[in-house]
Design a protein around this nucleic acid. Structure first.
Length: 330
DNA sequence: TTGGTTTGACCCCCG
DNA sequence: ACGGGGGTCAAACCA
């Protein structure tokens, strides 16, 4: 299946697992599904003739091919729309957003190396938005340690458009943050807020949030380091893109430099898939999300997964063993 | 009582 | 060595 080649899209299907996945963790469902099918069929092939196994394999292959074709169409449509959106968005041009390129918060000359990280750039827009558009620069920075060595720190800079009247300096990104300081800096009249990741005490990630001096409706969030824990999924910790209807996040879409990512989390809401807001500026994504969340798609998905699971000898064996363990001994 | 926020003081780095 | 400025700490405050 050449889905991955035709468009750089990742489609994760998450069944029965906590939402720990990063967008890059898996590449192509079609490939994975076929691999799973092959393995499950092979597993059963140990207890059936090879012709039977071949028939099953063929049937599965046809089935999956058809589904892949549909997914490919959908992904192509989604990708084309995301490209159009990137071209149309005034802030989506180029890697360096104007608001950050001439950022007033960027240190002018003075200060330690850690400051210089803020002004570096590269593209990776994968942040959630509180309102409107977001831009991100994503870099690795060599941070000198006391013993003379260097360690790499990921620094991501995100510009988010928010309501100018909102003074909270809160940028919802799906993680829990604890504010530990606020300071008015020389170059910007609006205060800079300092946050630490509150989800895990050992998490080294820090975040600085400050309004742009030029445009008070734009806040610049600078993330330093990488989370060493999965993304929390409870309501209120989720981005606006993904929270709706009781905080369940069955489906989320994000677009980065490598293409859009769709994540279906069937562990939420009783396995249900529901429509989520994909951001006001992305009505097409909403539409696709709605298609993905349609009862037909959902039913087909559930049916296929049930088939896969019940057809997998290893799964049925494990299930039988688990049931046996629950039964009292006579 | 607890957990999060605020805010003044302090520390550290750089010019 | 000194001063300025950003980053962090921690006590006080608040919900």
């Amino acid at each position: 299946m050449d889905t991955a080649r035709r468009s750089p899209v990742c489609l994760d299907l998450m069944v029965g697992l906590p939402m720990v996945c990063e967008p890059s963790s898996a590449r192509c469902t079609g490939m994975r599904a076929q691999a799973d099918i092959a393995s499950s069929a092979c597993g059963r092939a140990t207890s059936m003739t090879s012709s039977e196994a071949n028939k099953i394999m063929e049937a599965k292959f046809t089935e999956v091919t058809e589904e892949n074709r549909r997914l490919t169409e959908m992904i192509g449509y989604l990708y084309a729309n995301s490209q159009n959106f990137a071209r149309q968005s005034p802030e989506g041009e180029g890697e360096q957003p104007a608001s950050t390129a001439a950022s007033p918060t960027s240190p002018v000359g003075k200060k330690r190396s850690r400051e210089s990280m803020d002004t570096s750039d590269s593209g990776d827009v994968n942040s959630d938005k509180k309102m409107g558009t977001a831009e991100a620069e994503h870099i690795d920075v060599e941070s000198p340690l006391s013993n003379g060595t260097c360690r790499r720190i990921k620094v991501k800079r995100v510009c988010t458009r928010i309501d100018p009247s909102d003074t909270s300096l809160v940028v919802k990104d799906g993680y829990q943050w604890r504010k530990y300081g606020q300071k008015v800096t020389r170059d910007n009249p609006s205060p800079r807020a300092y946050f630490r990741c509150a989800f895990a005490p050992s998490c080294p990630v820090k975040k600085k949030v400050q309004r742009s001096a030029e445009d008070s409706s734009v806040v610049e969030a600078t993330y330093e380091g990488e989370h060493n824990h999965p993304r929390p999924t409870r309501a209120g910790e989720l981005p606006s893109c993904a929270t709706q209807g009781g905080g369940s996040v069955p489906c989320s879409i994000s677009i980065n430099s490598s293409g859009p990512t769709i994540t279906l989390d069937l562990t939420k809401n009783g396995g249900g898939v529901q429509v989520v807001e994909a951001g006001e500026a992305q009505p097409d994504l909403k539409k696709v999300c709605r298609e993905v969340a349609s009862p037909e798609f959902r039913a087909a998905l559930v049916e296929q997964m049930a088939r896969e699971l019940t057809g997998d000898r290893k799964f049925t064996d494990a299930l039988a063993a688990a049931i046996l363990r629950k039964l009292p001994d006579y």
